[in-house]
């Protein structure tokens, strides 16, 4: 078990997400400009709430998974580092059709995240007792830390993100590490996050979603507002509901050792899918995988053959985290 995994599941780890894209859209039509780009409906949420949604292309394929934060002054849009250029282009193109302006704040801001069952206590120690009132998908302008403090996350544990101007970097980092010392807070490795996400059936776009995959195939239906009348990829997504082709499915092996070699998923020696990610889950003590399988067979409790091993399709999330079971 890696140190980062151990910290995130049992205490807390500090991550620097500063390389992620951070855009701020302002102006009279900021909401409309962002809404034209995303598959969820920004009109449907109140201020100080966040959306986790997707930006699609015309074929319904996921171009970017984004967090959208609605404030009184404008809209924040956060994305993975490798989607920044693409998302920036989409936002700017949309803004030009409305009274809105897009600022790419990635280079002048930073984002530090504390993730783990103790993250709420650490956030409270640095940002005040009111932090306890921030719901999941909520955020606030925190005066105590001079940050935008967001409660987001994919790991099933508390995750508090602090977005601030770059000049706050060393102070904020020191403040968090000092407050987190009694909870064992240490700097974590971002490379361990995809496994922590997968255990909760949250998907990392880079690790778990092949190019060309739709939210329907990835099982991310909830990132789409199906009642929204107009968004890029609308018709394709609705068509895929009926016939997605392949669907993402969590598989679990009885073995500790991952299957070696061919990652093809088979039934009766017929190829019916492919694993895109295989990893050992320390909490389960078993190997798990994410596979894309023919939709007709992509159902929980079917047992597939992967490299000669039984691979049972299982329900997600794979277990109840400490944060959910007994929030501290």
């Amino acid at each position: 078990m890696s140190i980062t995994y151990e910290l995130v599941r049992n205490q807390a780890a500090l991550f620097d997400f500063s390389s992620e894209g951070r855009f701020f859209i302002r102006g009279a039509d900021a909401i409309e400009a962002v809404n034209a780009v995303i598959a969820s409906d920004l009109e449907a949420i109140p201020e100080l709430k966040a959306l986790n949604t997707v930006v699609l292309d015309e074929s319904g394929a996921i171009q970017a998974i984004v967090w959208v934060l609605k404030t009184e002054d404008g809209i924040w849009v956060l994305c993975d580092p490798d989607r920044r250029a693409l998302l920036g282009e989409r936002l700017v193109a949309s803004a030009m059709k409305y009274t809105a302006e897009v600022d790419d704040l990635t280079e002048i801001t930073l984002c530090l995240a504390v993730i783990g069952p103790a993250a709420q206590k650490i956030a409270m120690a640095v940002a005040g007792e009111d932090v306890i009132g921030i719901p999941y998908l909520g955020f606030e302008v925190n005066e105590q830390t001079d940050t935008l403090l967001c409660r987001l996350g994919y790991t099933g544990e508390f995750e508090f993100r602090f977005i601030a101007k770059n000049e706050r970097a060393s102070d904020l980092r020191a403040l968090l590490l000092e407050a987190g010392a009694e909870y064992g807070l240490e700097v974590g490795e971002a490379s361990d996050l995809p496994l922590l996400m997968l255990e909760m059936r949250s998907l990392s776009q880079r690790e778990h979603i092949p190019e060309g995959t739709s939210p329907i195939q990835a099982g991310l239906h909830w990132m789409v507002d199906f009642r929204k009348e107009c968004f890029t990829g609308h018709d394709a997504v609705h068509a895929l509901k009926m016939d997605p082709g392949r669907k993402a499915l969590m598989l679990q092996f009885e073995t500790v050792t991952p299957p070696v070699g061919d990652q093809t998923v088979r039934i009766d020696q017929q190829d019916v899918g492919r694993c895109v990610c295989v990893a050992f889950s320390p909490i389960l003590g078993k190997t798990i995988a994410l596979a894309y399988v023919d939709a007709a067979l992509a159902w929980v409790s079917v047992v597939f053959d992967v490299a000669g091993l039984d691979a049972r399709a299982v329900s997600a999330p794979l277990f109840i985290t400490k944060t959910v079971a007994s929030p501290q």
Binding site: R266, I267, D268, Q269, Q270, L297, W299, S301, V302, V303, F304, D305, V306, G308, L309, D310, A311
Partner: peptide, 12 residues
């Protein structure tokens, strides 16, 4: 051979 047969899988 590991896994179910196609018939078993379809029944499931």
């Amino acid at each position: 051979m590991a896994g179910m047969t196609m018939e078993e899988a379809q029944a499931r």
